[in-house]
Simulated scan of single mutants.
Amino acid sequence: MTDLDDTDRRLLLLLSEDATRSAGQLGRMVGLSQPAAWRRVQRLYRSGAIRGRRLDLDAEKLGFGVTVFLGVKLATKGRVSLDDFERILGAIPEVQRVEHVLGLYDYRLRVVARDLADFERVLRRRIMALPGVGSVEANVMLSEERLPGPL
């Protein structure tokens, strides 16, 4: 774990709000010079505290109006390796997130689709057809509220 001071935490908060801020902007906002802010941000990247930047796309505006969370229970854990199963899931473009979890299900998936008929096609032809899939439970997302701020 990286030792973070208050300035590092403030930089992380500012970057989590807008990752496109320049080192000059960040420096002015936290009371550092541009080079000092740049060095701190680079140190946060090198330490792994910042893993990268992501583009936050609006799935609905891109034509994907349905988001479904799937709980997937594998039929038998020995039938397919978990690495192979995760790799196969990663090749399905509608599967946006794969989480290996403890509990009732082995995996939790976030799946996007154009509509319910499209989701049914993805479920039947791509996900349920995978080797090792036992049972699946689907929860359709009604709305999503994003909590502000970093961790």
Rank of each mutant, 00 (worst) to 15 (best):
137 E>W: 09
71 G>Q: 07
142 L>S: 11
16 S>D: 04
65 G>C: 11
143 S>T: 14
81 S>I: 01
148 P>Y: 04
113 A>D: 03
6 D>T: 08
82 L>H: 12
17 E>D: 09
138 A>L: 10
46 R>H: 11
98 V>R: 04
92 I>H: 07
91 A>P: 06
3 D>A: 15
74 L>V: 07
13 L>E: 03
126 R>T: 00
145 E>Y: 11
135 S>Q: 14
17 E>W: 05
143 S>E: 14
47 S>Q: 02
6 D>S: 06
24 G>H: 15
4 L>G: 09
85 F>W: 02
98 V>D: 02
85 F>S: 00
73 K>A: 07
63 G>L: 07
2 T>W: 14
85 F>T: 02
23 A>F: 07
32 L>N: 09
7 T>C: 05
130 L>K: 11
48 G>W: 04
103 G>S: 04
104 L>V: 04
44 L>C: 03
120 E>Y: 15
89 L>E: 03
10 R>P: 06
130 L>C: 11
84 D>M: 15
143 S>I: 08
35 P>T: 06
144 E>C: 03
29 M>E: 07
67 T>S: 10
59 A>L: 07
4 L>S: 09
132 G>S: 06
106 D>V: 06
128 M>E: 09
86 E>D: 09
144 E>V: 14
64 F>A: 14
115 D>K: 12
65 G>T: 11
150 P>S: 12
115 D>Q: 13
20 T>I: 14
6 D>W: 12
47 S>V: 13
33 S>I: 06
32 L>G: 08
38 W>M: 10
116 L>I: 08
25 Q>I: 13
62 L>N: 08
94 E>Y: 00
147 L>T: 13
104 L>A: 12
67 T>P: 03
149 G>I: 02
118 D>F: 11
71 G>K: 06
102 L>G: 08
50 I>Q: 03
13 L>Q: 03
52 G>Q: 07
97 R>S: 09
30 V>M: 10
38 W>E: 10
110 R>N: 05
123 L>G: 00
48 G>T: 01
26 L>T: 03
23 A>T: 09
44 L>W: 02
11 L>R: 01
49 A>I: 09
